[in-house]
Amino acid sequence: MLEARLEQAELLKKVVDAIKDLVQDCNFDCNDSGVALQAMDNSHVALVSMMLKSEAFSPFRCDRNIALGINLSSLTKVLRCAQNNDILTVKAEDAPDVVNLMFESSDSDRLSEYDIKLMDIDQEHLGIPETEYAATVTMPSPEFQRICRDLSALSESVSIECTKEGVKFACNGDIGSGAVTLRSHSDVENPDQNIKIDLTEPVALTFSLKYLSNFCKASGLAKSVNICLSNEVPLLVEYGLAANSYLRFYLAPKIGD
């Protein structure tokens, strides 16, 4: 059986909020190392990969591999019944029909319990190769969100160009064009504001802003975001979570321009 207790329901609420517009039904694959999720969007342009390691829970118990097929809009409805600071316990039997979510207020005077019916989801799992990216940009997540939002007003796509000079987000649209260039920046007093660019070779790729803006819904999960690029491979946008856990988004590049 599975029993996993999160100190704060907020983590799962934010994760589900960040991915629910991209993927609808997905398997939460549970085993003794934690809870993992991999799902593509309907048009197979983007892939979500989440890992909540067992250390992120206390306690965590999962004796056998269990796939919890859950509709994210149902899960959202139930998670809305939890306060951010509630303790969240997820429970399921070994061959479950339902998953049980229990919310306890931190001062323990309220206990809410919900069951969500599970679905049988036949999901394709993709092998994501270990990649040494040509460029990795680490920047404040709100800054990345803002750039995506600003450029979305002008165009449907953005070119991301990394050179030793910095990283340039540029777009071209009907009303004109725009570009934001960031250089490496280190602020000892506010390390959350740091911008780090690790570059082994220059990269230039074009991506859909609609998808990038969607990924930015995860901005509340981490103060900084890693943007990893290599020519002709999907972009990786990574939000690191506590206890070595993560929420990653992969996005296929635009081709032929």
């Binding site: 197979h44 342009v45 799992h125 993709l126 092998g127 999907p234 296929a252 081709i255």
Partner: peptide, 14 residues
Amino acid sequence: KAGQGNIMNFFAKK
């Protein structure tokens, strides 16, 4: 979609 790559062309099915 024209011009948009497909993620399955990059990551193989397991």
